[in-house]
Write a protein that binds this DNA or RNA. Structure first.
Lengths: 164, 164
DNA sequence: TATCTGCTGGGCAGCTTGTTCAGTGATACG
DNA sequence: CGTATCACTGAACAAGCTGCCCAGCAGATA
């Protein structure tokens, strides 16, 4: 577990220019093509790189409204609620969190009015006691990983960032 | 704005086998290569497909702990807080939301103990009044987009899902 | 009817990929 | 100390894909 600086540079390069190809990477990094290839294979089998799926923008799909909903779950209904939420396309992700047996999920909708439909569908299920929704207005920091990759590459053991 | 079924199938195919290539896609979809190429170009210039960056797993990087923090911001300090949080690598994303002038951010850390360090760094800033943190235990629905893509492809106008 | 857009099917040169091989340096281990 | 293991290098090869071009055709539109 952990990556070295070469791994980090490969990931950063890949993030900046996804269509770059192994050969061009090896040229820019100043290493042999086989090395980059082996590193990439290892990163993928390690699970560090999960894949290269297309990053789709829900807004461009017609779902410009994003919201986070905190759900309060009736005791023992967790599994059923998970299964229910998994069937709702507008539920982009779901987490169970500490706190009062809660879940947090990310929703999208076609409009603020449409959000009502989505929420109704989400909470229209027995196991859900209550839902608190916060609509996203701005997204100053879009989901990112590069800064973390750089830190992990500089300091694989976490020694410098560890609390003293 | 909106995608048709062919666009949807292209995205799904790309998500299932990211390394597939335009030629193989055209074969599987039963259309000409130029068509797939043109669709892909359009999807990218439309912004529907933002890119093909590597999906990196923070856990595999040594950051297995995820948390969501709700931040209460002092009036007028929003921009400064955004800039501050953008400098913290462990802040994976940041949203401003409705509610009491709040922000919601996703954090990762090397351990529960390390999370304290991250939170201290996040809230160690004048503009932040209070922070409520929820640690993620499970992630029953990892960030996904395919179900939404399928729905958008089937129903580009949202007519069937619209509230009646 | 004339135009425009999108799709088809073909062809071409150039480049990348996947794979294999031998050689080398560093490291770990008996 | 000798040796096995590992990672990296540099090279080679055939195969396949990409990017780009073109002409033709169908459907929608003005």
């Amino acid at each position: 577990m952990g990556i070295d600086q070469l791994d980090g540079r490969i990931i950063v390069l890949l993030a900046e220019e996804p269509r770059i190809g192994v050969l061009e990477m090896s040229r820019r990094l100043g290493v042999a093509r086989g090395t980059v290839q082996a590193r990439l294979d290892r990163l993928q089998s390690n699970g560090v790189i999960r894949g290269f799926g297309p990053q789709v923008d829900p807004a461009a799909l017609g779902y410009p409204v994003t919201a986070f909903a905190t759900l309060e779950i009736r005791q023992g209904q967790g599994p059923d609620v998970r299964a229910h939420l998994a069937t709702v396309p507008e539920v982009l992700e779901l987490h169970t969190t500490t706190g009062s047996g809660d879940m947090l999920c990310r929703l999208v909708a076609r409009s603020n009015a449409d959000l009502q439909r989505v929420i109704d569908r989400v909470v229209g299920f027995d196991g859900i006691v209550r839902a608190a929704t916060a609509i996203v207005m701005e997204n100053p920091v879009p989901l990112r990983i590069i800064p973390l990759v750089k830190q992990a590459a500089e300091d694989p053991e976490g020694t410098t960032t560890w609390p003293t």
